[in-house]
Design a protein around this nucleic acid. Structure first.
Lengths: 240, 240
DNA sequence: CAATGCCAGTGATTTCAATCACACCAGACT
DNA sequence: AGTCTGGTGTGATTGAAATCACTGGCATTG
């Protein structure tokens, strides 16, 4: 499928690039569609592309020595993954799989490297992205230290709330609400948090009983009370 | 205290730098000594130096929302930390504390940035270091997925074995041995692995009973049988 | 249309590490 | 010497989450 410069400029990191650079990138990029469970990047492989997610949701996963699946991060539309290879020529550090049907733009590392070399702004942006990744991993690790499992789930849920809704309702009196599109399955959340699928289910039940979240079909999770969710995430309140 | 170019060139990443660059860095660098438990870098602060560890052992730590300490990584002599700030101007992502008395060289970010800009080799090296950091965090995360706690401890222990000794004894028949200088306390290992201090103690007892490790004063931990330790780490054998 | 597979929900049971509550030891300090 | 402190060693108890073993719903597919 053809990739246009316009498509690329839909991604925040690429947006500031000059038109010729975008054209150059577009020329070498390809779009690929993945079905649920499709493997986008393979750990250990010498992947030669960076993946920009246009639609859907991806998850970085790894496996323990004894074969258990471990969830590392989620990738939301507009974000990208596989950027580690831009900085060294090591292997891809983890698997990236599609949690939902997904549309991904593959841009060769080499093309991006050339842009990076010419374009110090780009270098900075990619550098801060990598730094952000480290910060995010650090946060995720600190989640695992929480002894209260329900709090862990609430934190993870909070992170899935769209950014624009988070600020909402700070001053407002009524219960601010939001929606998570294509939410991960209980299992997918479980491996992120090092807990069992059943435990995630039970926490969700508890949240539903308290009218804090609500399922709306398989592709939508409504958050009825953002403030309350946040309180649970922060530990100000405890889920019995 | 005065920092000489020779001192700096003791660090693998700085070694390939041309002499003038080293001189420039040395001029702006300072040495600082820390006592055990000293705080080298503070999370949230806008730290303006990269820390090269000359002697001792450091640990990156974070805290959960409810105040528990979480161990992130160890820093060994010859390695460095606080490099995230080279790539963006965000705050230091975690605390770094001295586990033993330590000698640390502080080199201002600005000086390093200048070198980086002039010196594409340096950029690559720092880039791959950051990439290595991500890989290392990914691995550490996967450790936490191990259901067998003893195995976790053995993996962590294995990672503390000096690199040069690891290859050893692959072909040899006799039990290859090694030594970990200034090993972390049980508590410090515990927070890395999300387990309690007592549990670490019990695993160590078990390892000592099997003559796999042996204390030699507080500053030395002897590994009497590297191969066996590795087998436990890999899960080929189980510690009752 | 069965038929299959995947996801979610739920009770019963088990297990195993956290916690608590100590004792002990070595080194630092007075 | 005496006293503190920080690290370690150990047993008893307990509690919370994993596991097991199901049910049932919904969607895809032959």
């Amino acid at each position: 499928m053809v990739v246009t410069p316009e498509l690329l400029s839909a991604f925040p990191i690429l947006k500031p690039l000059p038109r010729p650079a975008l054209e150059q990138l577009a020329e070498h990029s390809t779009v690929k569609k993945f079905a649920r469970r499709g493997i986008v990047l393979t750990a250990g492989e010498q992947e030669d592309s960076v993946c920009f997610l246009f639609e859907g949701r991806l998850q970085g996963v790894d496996f323990t020595i004894d074969g258990r699946e471990v969830g590392l991060f989620f990738v939301e539309p507009g974000d990208f993954c596989g950027e580690l290879g831009l900085f060294d020529d090591g292997p891809q550090s983890e698997f990236v799989i599609a949690l939902t049907a997904a549309v991904v733009v593959f841009t060769p590392k080499e093309a991006l490297r050339q842009i990076m070399a010419k374009n110090p702004g780009m270098l900075n942006i990619l550098g801060s992205k990598l730094a952000a990744r480290v910060r995010q991993m650090t946060f995720q690790r600190s989640l695992l230290g929480l002894p209260n499992i329900a709090q862990r789930v609430c934190c993870q849920l909070w992170m899935l709330v769209p950014e624009r809704d988070k600020a909402d309702g700070k001053s407002e009196q009524h219960a601010a609400n939001s929606m998570i599109a294509n939410p991960p399955t209980h299992m997918e959340i479980a491996i992120m948090l090092n807990i069992s699928r059943e435990t995630v289910t039970r926490v969700f039940q508890s949240l539903q009983n308290r009218q804090i979240v609500k399922r709306d079909g398989p592709a939508k999770l409504l958050i009825s009370d953002l403030n309350l969710l946040k309180r649970y995430a922060e530990g100000s309140d405890e889920l019995g």
